[in-house]
Amino acid sequence: MRAAQFCHSCGKVQPPAPADYFTFFGLPRKLHLKEAALQREFYELSRKLHPDLSVRADAREQAWILEQSSRLNDAYRTLKDPIQRTQYLLGLEGVQLEEQSKSATEEARTAGTVKKQVVPPALLEEVFELNLQLEEARLAKKMGEPDPELVRELEQQKKKWEAQFEESLEELKGYWHEWDKLIDHDAAPEKRAAVRDKMVDLLNRRNYIRNLVRDVNEVLEG
């Protein structure tokens, strides 16, 4: 890794450059990364950018150190997490999930059509049905009359969605592989866009699944 926070000849801290987090760590925009190496680099840079070590620096330099070290923390926190890393990269590739949704609505409005949902309709149906069951279970519990059959059903659902949640990470890693290969081969933008869109679809589905897992657990344990 080749980080660029310091002058190559004198080793002094540099003014923060408007770089993305990958560049900050001197990394290519790839999704597989060696987490241990990233951590080592983080610790080393943290030491070098520690405010206590800069007592002899002038005010301007101290301000740079502070800014660089806060950027370092943001960059590390984002890159070390597989999902956040992917989301961040998608953002760099021009994906803005919410904007996408709004502009698709506007498109449907102008064309007089129905907006295409970003997740398969069957998944939405399942999400809706499970939410109905959860509502029923919460109500039953509040009334002091828990429904054992419903609880058993929810336990099945919990297993199913937790498994899907795990699988979604494996699926994502498959796309990472495709993505990284394209970066290595300097592939055409439309090829990258295809993999990018597959990751967007997957993360959208995963959001629903994550919420279902959270809500089922909350009802079963609470």
Partner: peptide
């Protein structure tokens, strides 16, 4: 119509 917002998981 059944729609959802993946950003927050609403349906």
């Amino acid at each position: 119509g059944l729609v959802g917002a993946p950003e927050c998981g609403d349906v």
